[in-house]
Design a protein around this nucleic acid. Structure first.
Length: 122
DNA sequence: TTTATGGCTGTCA
DNA sequence: ATGACAGCCATAA
């Protein structure tokens, strides 16, 4: 019998064709409807990484240029735009969101109760 | 292989 | 309410 493995062995996805963790996150992100936002933790959870909200963030940071993933619709748990490596990027994100009809309060925060995307738990 | 990093989060003072 | 700390996990060196 196969040796018992404490944790499931890594999926060992194939180089091309199979989807990596990031791709899976991106796929979920693409489902975010316009005019709504999700938190990194939520995104990670939907992607199957309930304890890896950071990975969701890095997946966004790792997005290839030209991708149609609405990274702009991903914000932190506070409903705020997280500071990232790219200077000025948060401003861009905010503009994109406002362009979708999302409103920010004076503190630069989004009301997740109104704009938060609440997908059915798959 | 190990080590370091990083668009986070939840808890505690 | 804000500020600081530790935990978590995949990716890149």
């Amino acid at each position: 019998m196969a040796a018992k493995r404490k944790r499931a062995a890594k999926p060992k996805r194939n180089p091309a064709g199979d989807e990596s963790t990031y791709e899976r996150i991106w796929r979920v992100a693409k489902r975010i409807p316009r005019g709504h936002v999700v938190t990194y933790g939520q995104l990670a959870e939907l992607a199957g990484l309930p304890r890896a909200p950071r990975q969701a963030g890095y997946a966004m940071a790792s997005l290839p240029s030209g991708s149609r993933v609405p990274w702009q619709r991903v914000v932190n748990a506070r409903g705020e735009i997280s500071p990232r490596s790219d200077p000025g990027g948060e401003w861009v994100q905010r503009v994109l969101l406002e362009r979708e009809g999302i409103e920010f309060d004076e503190r630069g925060r989004i009301d997740l109760r109104r704009f938060g995307w609440r997908p059915r738990i798959a």
